[in-house]
Amino acid sequence: MVRRSGRGAAPDSVVRVVARMLPAPSVMVAAALIVKGYAEVGDGFAAGVIVALAVSLTYVAVGADGAEAVLPVLRHAPKIAVTGLLLALASGFFPLVYGEEPVSHQPAPGEPLTKFGKLELFTQLLMDIGVFLLVVGVLVMLLHQFGRLRGEEKS
């Protein structure tokens, strides 16, 4: 954890610069992993872990308060996690509306796909995005919780 009170050295400038630059590209890598997930290695979980790793470096470099000042979206981690969970649940259970079993694909195998450029749209993509959001949200919540320990003990 970061020692802001002068005990031990603050992380050096390299770490801070890398930490600042890393989150944006990590989101790109995550997006690639989610899209590739159906033909090659990758899925929402791995993507989520990668983004969370990048974010965790920010926490190490500038501390919990600093990280949340740089990336204000981190403050909404619980909401992100719940949104992700709801999205995943929705994509799992919506076939009930059609009277089908939960976790069925839509469109079903063999049916024509909607394509967006080279991206093939189907409900599993939604599920993976949900898992991605859930993982990022939960891991950031943990970082938030444990990143503040030292400060809390002192007060």
């Binding site: 979980f45 939960v138 943990l142 919780q145 444990f146 003990e153």
Partner: peptide
């Protein structure tokens, strides 16, 4: 692994609370 992570995180949070 994921379940292990979640439960261990919860346990750590509890230990933290205990320390406080």
């Amino acid at each position: 692994l994921v379940i292990g992570l979640a439960t261990v995180a919860l346990l750590l949070a509890m230990v933290h609370r205990v320390v406080v």
